[in-house]
């Protein structure tokens, strides 16, 4: 399931819903991305996440479908927020469930790695010296690259 929303989400509620009523699930893996306070860049006081409505949902659905084709998964949940967020705020939740832990853990890592290089989101950071668009990192490209087939 894909959700792109401005509102915050409750991790406990979301994870509970993902396994509710399915006793075949043996493992649930999750990743939560948070806004970091980057003191070395003049203290990020907030960031605004912009996205491309329409394309975002399509690309996330495609990433979910790719994960389901590679691992035997029961549930897949991707929630990604947009709008203005402050340090400590949740940005993204990725969770997967499967009969076995390896499928859940690996697919969760795959989803966040691919999401970071394929889903059309951009971060504008606000700091002491004004605003700046976050530059894409080569380390993120390399993280996604290792899942290529």
């Amino acid at each position: 399931m894909i959700r792109v929303q401005r509102e915050d989400f409750d991790i406990g509620t979301e994870l509970a819903l993902l396994t509710e009523g399915n006793s075949k699930i043996g493992g649930l893996a999750s990743f939560v991305g948070l806004v970091r306070d980057l003191a070395d860049q003049g203290a990020v006081s907030a960031m605004t996440l912009e996205h491309y409505p329409g394309m975002t949902e399509k690309r996330l659905a495609e990433i979910e479908a790719e994960a389901r084709s590679r691992w035997p998964l029961d549930g897949v949940l991707i929630i990604h927020r947009y709008g203005r967020l402050e340090p400590g705020d949740r940005i993204v939740l990725v969770a997967t469930t499967s009969a076995h832990r390896q499928a859940a853990l690996e697919s969760c890592a795959f989803l966040i790695d691919w999401l970071k290089t394929k889903a059309p989101f951009w971060k504008l950071e606000e700091g002491a010296k004004g605003t700046a668009w976050v530059e894409a990192k080569e380390s993120d490209d390399r993280a996604a690259e290792k899942w290529k087939r």
């Binding site: 394309m55 999401l115 290089t117 989101f121 951009w122």
Partner: peptide, 9 residues
């Protein structure tokens, strides 16, 4: 659509 490399997640 034209845009810079994406930076979500």
């Amino acid at each position: 659509a034209l845009f810079p490399p994406v930076t979500g997640g």
